[in-house]
Amino acid sequence: MAENDEPLVKIRNLHFSRGDRKIFDGVDIDIQKGRITAIMGPSGTGKTTLLKLIGGQLRPDQGTIHVDGKHVHKLSHSQLYELRKRMGMLFQSGALLTDINVYDNVAFPIREHTKLSESIIRHLVLMKLHAVGLRGARDLMPSELSGGMARRVALARAIALDPMMIMFDEPFTGQDPISMGVLVTLIRSLNDALDLTSILVSHDVQETASIADYIYVISEGKVVEHGSSETLQRSSSPWVKQFMEGLPDGPVPFHYPSLDYADDLLTGSRP
């Protein structure tokens, strides 16, 4: 694929905090067109927050985010919505509308944003559902779907308007090995077939490493390491090593910061 110099998403010096807690403390990330870029890090590092910042649902305290050359947080309400039409986002829960069935869920963005006739919408919806292998499930209600199926429907909905990029929020969490395998394959094949740019937020190291072209590892509000998955496997940083190999103890201690164990026991009953 021809490398374009200008990345699709360009994040510079991003600062964001919730209350007193700093979530991002000067983060720079580039997301190249046509690739799957993974953003990894332990739970609670604000990976989902990052996606919401890119989608313009949250405002950074400082720093800029450009998507396709546009400064996300300087856009007007309607310009932001125009931009969002070209972004897809796959929520962890799927975020399907629970009062309408699978077919209507996938048709929802098409009906909202286009004036296509119902027969064309039907073609589009069935095509998208076919792509995720759920054409047969079109009449089911979201409550009748398994978690993996719900995510696949949500994926079909996210690609309904043929966006330029899709953001995946923890797509593998809580999936059995089979649906995990299905999702991994789907993300890779859709990215290549539809010429998408994918941003994948996850802490499932193996699956993510297997499909991501480029990986950012975030911890404590900073990018600790970035590179292809091979680079990261060979990283010299003990922290990255612990994270990538899933070791219980290391730079991230097993114990929550506490008094010395012996002292703690000897002080006897709580004061």
Binding site: K52, G55, Q57, Y81, E82, L83, R84, K85, M87, G88, M89, F91, Q92, S93, A95, L96, L97, T98, F108, P109, E112, H113, A154, R157
Partner: peptide, 22 residues
Amino acid sequence: GLMKSTEQLSGMEMMAVDPLQR
């Protein structure tokens, strides 16, 4: 409230559908 807690409102926003209006 349930639509909010199941991220449906957020999902709509990201589909460029304003939940306030829709």
